[in-house]
Nucleic acid binder design. Structure first.
Length: 536
DNA sequence: GAGTTTGAAACT
DNA sequence: CAGTTTCAAACTC
C-alpha cells in the first residue's frame, strides 16, 4: 500500500523521462505557472514518448502540456551532446552554473544533466539499458525498441531518486512510470531536485557528464570520425570491478559494450579484446581503422610499447601471482588507440617517460599502474620495429626540412656533457617549450611529445654538427648526408634501446612487479642499459 | 518474486 | 585519498 501511494506520488507528474535540457523554442513562451524549463521539459519529454510508453497509468494522470515533436535534427547543444554529435564542453569554473551557462543561448536555465548511460544506449544497441525487471512492459519496449531514447524505470527506494543511484535522475530525466518510492525526481519536488543537482554539481562538476565518450553518431567528416573513434569507448573513470571479471553488466564498461581501458582498476578483468570469455558479439569491432593506426603510427607504436609496460593496479598484483598463466595477449585495440589519443591530447606523456614512471612507481611501491596489457605479452618486437621504421622515415623528412631550422633549446649546453638517457631527454624536452620542432613543420600528423622530443634531439645534433662543421663544409648536399647518417645513428640507438627494454621487460616483468619495492638497482640497470644503448 | 551479488555512489 | 556504507541494478534460484 505504501508503495502504491508512493508510486502514485512518483507518477503523479507523469513526466516521460527525457533529458530535460533541450527544449523546443516554443517552450520559452510558457512561463506562467511553471518556469519555461519545466514546460519545456514536459513538452519535450512527452514528445519523445513512443506509443508504448504512453501507458495507461500515464493516461489516467494529469494531462501533459501540448506535446511538441522533437526536431529531427538536434538544435540544441544539449541534444547534440545527448546524441553524441557534439562533445561535452568542460564545465565552467562554477560547477553549478556550468550546465546552464553552457547552453544559455539555446536552452532555458537549470538544464538537467546528461545521463552517464545515455551514450551507451545510443552507442550500442546491443546493450540493453537498465530496465526494471518489475516493469515487463518496459522490458518489452526495450526488446522492441533499440532507439536511443529508451525509457528507464527505476526502482529506487531510499534515494528519493535524487541521487546518482537513480538512473532516471542521473540521466537528467524525471521519473515516469517508475517503481520508485518516495520519488522526488518530479516536478512536484522540483526545488529539492534542483537542490540535489546543485549539490551534486558542486561536489563533482562532471557528475552528469557521460562517462564514456559518445559515439561518432552523425560524424561524416573522416577526420572527426577518427577523432571520435579515438575517444570512443573509454570509460572516463574506469570500472573497479572485482568479481564480475568485467563480464557482467555490473561492470559499466561491459554494460557500455566497451573494453576496459587503462582507466579501469578492475581485478581479473576479462573484458579485453582477445578474451575468450568475452562475448565476441559484444565487441564493436575496430574502433580505428588500420589505416589510421598506420597514419598515426608513431603514436600507436609508442603507445603499444607503453601499453606493454603498465597494468592496472589490482589486476597487476594478481598477475604477479598468476604470472605463469597470465591471460593471452591483451592489447585491446581500443586501449591502444585510446592511448594514442591520450598522448596526442595531453601531450604530457612521452615514450621516454614511461620507464621512468614505471620505475618511480615501482620504487615508491605504488601499484597505481594504469595500463592494462599483460606485461610480457603486449610489447612486441613488431611494435618496436614499427616505431623505428616510422621514426626513420619521419626523420628523413625532418632532415630534408631542416634547411635552416634551429632548435632553440636550453639543453644545448648540456649536450656535450653526456649522452643522457632518452627518458631524461624527453623529460627535458617536454619541459622545454623552447624546444622547437615546430608543429608547422609537422604538418601531416600530430606528434607525441615523445616523437617531438626525439626529433628535437635529432635536430639538435644536426645543428650541433652544422655548427662544428660549418666552417669546412659549405656543401648542402654533404650536410644532408651527414644529417641522414646522424638520423640513422640516433634511431638505431633508439631502436636498440627499445628492443633491449622490451627484452628486459619480457624477462623480468614479474620481478618488476613484485610487491616489494623493485630495487633501485633495477632502475639503475635500466638506465645503464639505456645509456649503453644510447651510446651505441 | 524474493533473496543475493555486485559495484558505483555516497559518506566518513 | 582510502576505507566503509549505502544504494539500486543485475543476477540467481
Amino acid at each position: 500500500m505504501e508503495k502504491l501511494d508512493q508510486d502514485s506520488g512518483s507518477n503523479q507528474n507523469l513526466l516521460p523521462r527525457q533529458l530535460d535540457f533541450s527544449p523546443p523554442a516554443a517552450a520559452v513562451e510558457e512561463t506562467k505557472k511553471m518556469d519555461s524549463f519545466h514546460e519545456t521539459e514536459k513538452k519535450q519529454s512527452h514528445s519523445v514518448l513512443d506509443s508504448q510508453s504512453s501507458r495507461e497509468d500515464q493516461k489516467s494522470e494529469q494531462p501533459l502540456p501540448q506535446p511538441q515533436p522533437l526536431p529531427s535534427v538536434p538544435d540544441t547543444e544539449a541534444e547534440q551532446l545527448r546524441l553524441g554529435v557534439k562533445s561535452l564542453k568542460p564545465p565552467p569554473s562554477s560547477p553549478v552554473k556550468s550546465p546552464q551557462q553552457s547552453a544559455t543561448e539555446v536552452t532555458p536555465p537549470q538544464k538537467p544533466p546528461l545521463h552517464r548511460f545515455s551514450h551507451q544506449v545510443q552507442k550500442n544497441p546491443l546493450v540493453k539499458c537498465r530496465v526494471s525487471k518489475q516493469d515487463p512492459l518496459t522490458q518489452l519496449e526495450s526488446s522492441k525498441d533499440d532507439t536511443p531514447n529508451k525509457q528507464k524505470h527505476c526502482n529506487c527506494k531510499a534515494s528519493k531518486c535524487l541521487k546518482l543511484y537513480c538512473e532516471c535522475f542521473a540521466s537528467g530525466s524525471y521519473c515516469n512510470g517508475c517503481n520508485c518510492l518516495n520519488c522526488h525526481n518530479n516536478l512536484e519536488h522540483e526545488s529539492s531536485r534542483q537542490e540535489a543537482i546543485t549539490t551534486l554539481l558542486e561536489r563533482n562538476p562532471d557528475a552528469f557528464k557521460p562517462k564514456i565518450a559518445g559515439s561518432p553518431h552523425g560524424m561524416n567528416d573522416l577526420q572527426e570520425d577518427v577523432r571520435q573513434s579515438l575517444i570512443l569507448g573509454k570509460h572516463s573513470k574506469g570500472c573497479h570491478c572485482k568479481k564480475s571479471g568485467c563480464l557482467k553488466k555490473y561492470c559499466e564498461c561491459y554494460q557500455a559494450d566497451i573494453l576496459c581501458s587503462e582507466n579501469c582498476k578492475c581485478q581479473d578483468c576479462k573484458n579485453f579484446e582477445g578474451s575468450k570469455e568475452r562475448n565476441p558479439h559484444l565487441l564493436h569491432g575496430p574502433q580505428v581503422s588500420e589505416t589510421y593506426v598506420q597514419q598515426s603510427s608513431a603514436h600507436a607504436a609508442v603507445n603499444r610499447a607503453i601499453d606493454g609496460y603498465l597494468e592496472p593496479s589490482d589486476s597487476r598484483k594478481r598477475k604477479i601471482k598468476d604470472a605463469s598463466h597470465s591471460v593471452p595477449a591483451r592489447v585491446p585495440h581500443i586501449v591502444q588507440n585510446q592511448t594514442v589519443n591520450h598522448v596526442i591530447r595531453n601531450g604530457d606523456t612521452s615514450l621516454f617517460l614511461i620507464p621512468k614512471d614505471l620505475n618511480n612507481k615501482a620504487v615508491s611501491g605504488s601499484t597505481t599502474f594504469t595500463y592494462r596489457s599483460s606485461l610480457s605479452n603486449t610489447i612486441q618486437p613488431r611494435h618496436v620495429n614499427e616505431l623505428c621504421l616510422l621514426l626513420v622515415s619521419k626523420s628523413v623528412d625532418v632532415a630534408k626540412k631542416l634547411s635552416g631550422g634551429k632548435c632553440e633549446t636550453e639543453k644545448r649546453n648540456d649536450r656535450d656533457s653526456s649522452v643522457d638517457t632518452a627518458q631524461r631527454d624527453a623529460n627535458e624536452m617536454n619541459d622545454s617549450p623552447d624546444c622547437v620542432l615546430d608543429a608547422n613543420r609537422m604538418d601531416e600528423k600530430p606528434l607525441s611529445p615523445a616523437t617531438r622530443a626525439l626529433m628535437c634531439d635529432e635536430e639538435q645534433m644536426i645543428i650541433s654538427e652544422k655548427e662544428t662543421s660549418a666552417q669546412g663544409k659549405e656543401d648542402a648536399d654533404t650536410s644532408s648526408e651527414v644529417y641522414l647518417e646522424q638520423e640513422r645513428q640516433i634511431l638505431s640507438s633508439f631502436r636498440d634501446y627499445l628492443i633491449q627494454l622490451s627484452n628486459r621487460v619480457s624477462i623480468n616483468g614479474a620481478n618488476i612487479k613484485t610487491k616489494t619495492n623493485p630495487s633501485k638497482r633495477e632502475l639503475e640497470d635500466e638506465e645503464q642499459s639505456h645509456r649503453d644503448s644510447s651510446l651505441g
